[in-house]
Design a protein around this nucleic acid. Structure first.
Length: 611
DNA sequence: TTTAGGG
DNA sequence: CCCTAAA
């Protein structure tokens, strides 16, 4: 573990932090946590400098919190939910077994960062897959999956080793992926396909691992040679002993499983807390956080109410929202949050967030830090354009005198432009209006410059990930003038592979058509992506799956600039489509699944497949 | 409000 | 993605 933390010879601080996490985790009691907030908001840089958490990180936490809460709620409501969940875990959680951490393999910091990101990003694998597979007895679908593999079949793999490998590129993603044979360039392509962004990393090994991680939703991509089947990663050989060490820990496995079934974490958290081994590393960290979040929440709930500061999401939605879905969403989110009593950012911490003027519609979060006893306001995170070519990791500002002054001025400028602080809401609104109508080139320039510098400075020290594929923030927001005078934002956000996977999983779990459910449960952490989006995407996926799969090798044409969807996923999509079209409800398995969703009566209601 | 479909 | 009719 330590090894892992030690990146580029500046691991001490990190180490400390990790230690803290461990402790917290082991103790797993809010009481023992010195300062939860600090823990959450401050990370330690490679140089031992304190670095504010990125908003992505914060978001992540928030998302988790919300998830937790929501889940708790649901569980409470539906008595059977728990049992159901357990079943699910036990029956389908296994695939994740292989996923621990390539602990001993921190090739470089970037890799680490990326790993973390992947991990945080995709916490929900196709958990339901095995389940669905079980009753996916339709000849057609099964046949599909059982097609002979072109490549070598890995022993010990699941029974459904559908591999229709063939054409280069993403066709490589079909069924079984043999990243080993890909050139760096190809790897890059795959990478892009997987994460929706480019990468500059030239390290083949890293690329492979990263991709594998992305595809498997697993962090355990330790081996140099491996194959990905469906969404599971199958090792070719166990050259990694360190890995095994991890796996040795049953607890850890449990934890991992839970993590991967993010929604279910709650049901198992209790078991985990006590026994979680210290060896839990990165993956462990996540778990730790989750648990932590839980505890924190609990504590919070018990504690007297405090005024809850608007969460980032809240602000985000307020500011970027379209009246349409946002009003709904934000409302709902807020409501739920309120009801549950989540206070992700207690105002009492000495490292608290203060929201300042958003810059050009982007929220600038500054942190009133008491470092050194001075109440310095430092930009915690500032949102940079995170568009498709997501190569720009959220700019982190190091606690550098230079950097600080720089930022300070920057912020100041922002404030000057938009005026002094105002109420969050009104502020955001005003800003939104402004930003949509007028662009400030200067600021923009400044922004990008800064971005660069800060990126350089803190280039990879992310302890937690900064979205490779699933950041929770908004991206290309293009304002589009509307005929009726209004200005509408048309933000196009490419679907990342992980999102697609989540979607597919969601459909498999809840069924196509129940978009709102899927949205709430599987996409809870994605403030964008409305249920409508999901629906649309699914429609597209279906189209794609039916179009491409049959012609499998025929120019799967990655010519498309857009992210190609790996064959396994398409297969699964088709499978699901068939499944749902034919027997949406009847199966016991299905009922089991349905039972989980709080089945408001419609449990036995067959849902016409979406075809 | 959410879903299904068309554009 | 957006928009809207229908439920």
């Amino acid at each position: 573990m330590e090894k892992l933390v030690e990146v580029e010879g500046s691991g001490e601080r990190k180490f400390e932090v990790t230690g803290l996490e461990k402790n917290n985790f082991v103790l797993s009691s809010p009481r023992h946590v010195a300062d939860p907030v600090v823990y959450k908001l401050v990370r330690v840089d490679g140089n031992g400098q304190l670095v504010p958490a990125t908003d992505d990180e914060l978001m992540e936490v928030e998302g988790l919190l919300e998830n937790e809460k929501r889940e708790t709620h649901i569980v409470a409501d539906t008595g059977q939910a728990l049992g159901c969940i357990s079943n699910e875990v036990s029956s389908s959680g296994m695939p994740q077994l292989e996923s621990s951490e390539g602990l001993s393999q921190s090739e470089n910091t970037e890799a680490d960062t990326e790993k973390l990101s992947a991990q945080l990003e995709e916490t929900v694998p196709f958990g339901a897959q095995s389940l669905t597979d079980d009753h996916a007895t339709q000849p057609g679908s099964v046949g599909e999956r059982l097609k002979p593999l072109d490549g070598p079949i890995q022993g010990g793999s699941s029974t459904s080793a559908g591999c229709i490998s063939s054409t280069p590129d993403f066709s490589k993603l079909k069924g079984e992926i043999c990243l080993d044979n890909l050139s760096i360039k190809e790897l890059h392509e795959v990478f892009k396909a997987t994460f929706g962004r480019d990468t500059t990393v030239k390290d083949k090994l890293w690329l492979k691992r990263r991709i594998a991680m992305g595809l498997t939703n697993s962090c355990d991509v330790s081996t140099t040679t491996f194959v990905i089947k469906d969404n599971k990663l199958v090792k070719k050989d166990n050259e990694d002993s360190a890995n095994n060490v991890n796996l040795a820990t049953g607890k850890e496995f449990q934890a991992v499983a839970v993590e991967y079934n993010g929604d279910l974490l709650n049901s198992l958290s209790s078991q985990i807390d006590d026994h979680q081994s210290v060896s839990a590393v990165r993956s462990g960290n996540n778990v730790v956080e989750n648990n932590f979040a839980n505890e924190d929440l609990a504590a919070d709930q018990r504690a007297a109410k405090r005024v809850r500061k608007p969460t980032k999401r809240y602000i985000e939605e307020l500011s970027e929202a379209e009246p349409k879905d946002n009003s709904g969403n934000s409302g709902r989110l807020l409501a739920s949050t309120k009801n549950i009593g989540i206070r992700p950012l207690p105002s009492e911490s000495h490292a608290r967030l203060a929201r300042n003027a958003p810059l050009e519609g982007r929220t600038v979060i500054t942190r009133l830090d008491s470092l050194g006893g001075f109440g310095i306001q430092v930009p915690c995170v500032y949102r940079v354009r995170r568009s498709r070519p997501r190569k720009n990791v959220t700019a982190l500002l190091k606690f550098h005198p230079s950097g600080m002054s720089m930022t300070a001025t920057f912020i100041k400028r922002g404030l000057d432009v938009h005026g002094p602080q105002m109420g969050n809401e009104s502020m955001n609104k005003v800003l939104e209006a402004k930003s949509s109508s007028e662009q400030t080139p200067h600021q923009f320039a400044a922004e990008s410059n800064k971005e660069k510098s800060s990126t350089d400075l803190g280039h990879d020290m992310e302890l937690k990930y900064v979205d490779p594929s699933g950041d929770t923030s908004d991206d290309n927001v293009v304002t589009v003038p509307t005929a009726k005078g209004g200005i509408r934002r048309k933000h196009h956000r490419a679907w990342t592979l992980s999102e697609v996977m989540k979607l597919v999983e969601g459909v498999s779990k809840y069924g196509a058509g129940r978009w709102s459910e899927i949205k709430r449960l599987a996409f809870a952490s994605y403030s964008y992506r409305t249920s409508v989006d999901l629906k649309d995407k699914w429609r597209n996926l279906l189209k794609a799956s039916f179009a491409q799969t049959p012609v499998n090798q025929g120019a799967s044409s990655r010519k498309h600039p857009s992210v190609p969807i790996p064959a396994p996923i398409l297969l699964r999509v088709r499978e699901l489509a068939d499944m749902q079209a034919q027997a949406p409800s009847p199966n016991l398995g299905a009922s089991k699944l349905l039972a989980c969703d709080g089945g408001a009566g419609s449990v036995n209601e067959t849902r016409p497949g979406y075809l």
